[in-house]
Write a protein that binds this DNA or RNA. Sequence first.
DNA 1: AATTGTGAACCTCTTCACAGCT
DNA 2: AGCTGTGAAGAGGTTCACAATT
Lengths: 211, 211
Amino acid sequence: MKKISDSTIHRLSKYLHTLETLEKNNIQTISSEKIAKIEQITSANFRKDLSFFGSFGRRGLGYNVSSLKIQIQNILGLNRSWNIALIGIGNLGTALIDYNELKRRDLHVRCIFDKNPQKIGKKIKGLEVLDIKRLPEEIKKQIIQIGIITTPAPAAQHIADMLMDAGIRAILNFAPKTLAAREGAMIRTEDTTTPLQTLTYYLSHTKPATK
Amino acid sequence: MKKISDSTIHRLSKYLHTLETLEKNNIQTISSEKIAKIEQITSANFRKDLSFFGSFGRRGLGYNVSSLKIQIQNILGLNRSWNIALIGIGNLGTALIDYNELKRRDLHVRCIFDKNPQKIGKKIKGLEVLDIKRLPEEIKKQIIQIGIITTPAPAAQHIADMLMDAGIRAILNFAPKTLAAREGAMIRTEDTTTPLQTLTYYLSHTKPATK
DNA sequence: AATTGTGAACCTCTTCACAGCT
DNA sequence: AGCTGTGAAGAGGTTCACAATT
């Protein structure tokens, strides 16, 4: 299959959310022009993104909101449920366990791990914190497909390796450190401080608008 | 000033973290080749990123870790402290209040807001949850420069407008919805579910490596 | 008349390759 | 000899503009 750019996938995920909102507001049809305005992109960009996967609109009429929503769900692999293991039970990890936006998309945190003996055995939001040593067996037992790393940076690569050893091919890493992925595996690093730094950069290099 | 791409700023933020780690390990000098390997990019990409801001290395020798670190901090506007207001006290908001990576960079959450009367007046991690109505006055009183939105999506644009009315020019939005920014203001939207959807896309469109 | 789907043009970012400095 | 800094080439992503369709 042709390689699709990361930006396209990123935007598809946004379109999906917008379509869900439109559907909730009982809007049945939408043109590329209108959705582009909401997304703050050009309509050609929207149409081109979709064109990589097929043609989903009707010329002269636009797109059917509900059916396009389902099509994008299918493209993104959201037409099924996914099981997640989360490693590192700090503030962020705890927040993610029952994050509603995940559940809504049928993305479920099934097991949680930490290496701190003080935390192991405790129940958090209905899940028992397991010893990190039990990761390989639990990944298999619970049929986990995705790992989320919310440990401090120094531990992150080791955890990623454990996950990949256990057959995990998709990892979301919140530790602020680029991790090495094996052949056939994908690791996405999302550092919360990075977007803030683009903001401090912006503030430092621009002046307030004068009106 | 010449427009610098988002990707460059994004990478600078990563370089900074890597340099901090190198410094901690008492490494004094590094070549673009070595740092590129850590970042999983090409060395030309690293050098070009820096070249937009000046020349920081020494031909034949490489870069001094400590001084490059400071230079990048300066570029990113991290040579000073910044005050943050956080709106929406859910799981994610609570997690961010005392996130160590922020404090380490001198980014401080100074005041927190919610509209839920059940939450207003409660103390969370040493900060009192304030009524959202008090936002304008507190922004001024506490000299806030950055807003972080962790409310549900439907409230997000209204909060962003309140922030911009109060003179805030930089907003980090965790609500899964593209927000409209005014002239002279920047809003970055970081949806936690989006990177997960790039992973489900990846899993759905690739096969495990066979060895 | 309205709006999609898409080749071609355009623009932006990345990589190459090498002159220039240490 | 080793490594940076950068103009030029190359790759990739976005927008234009219009034929095709309802």
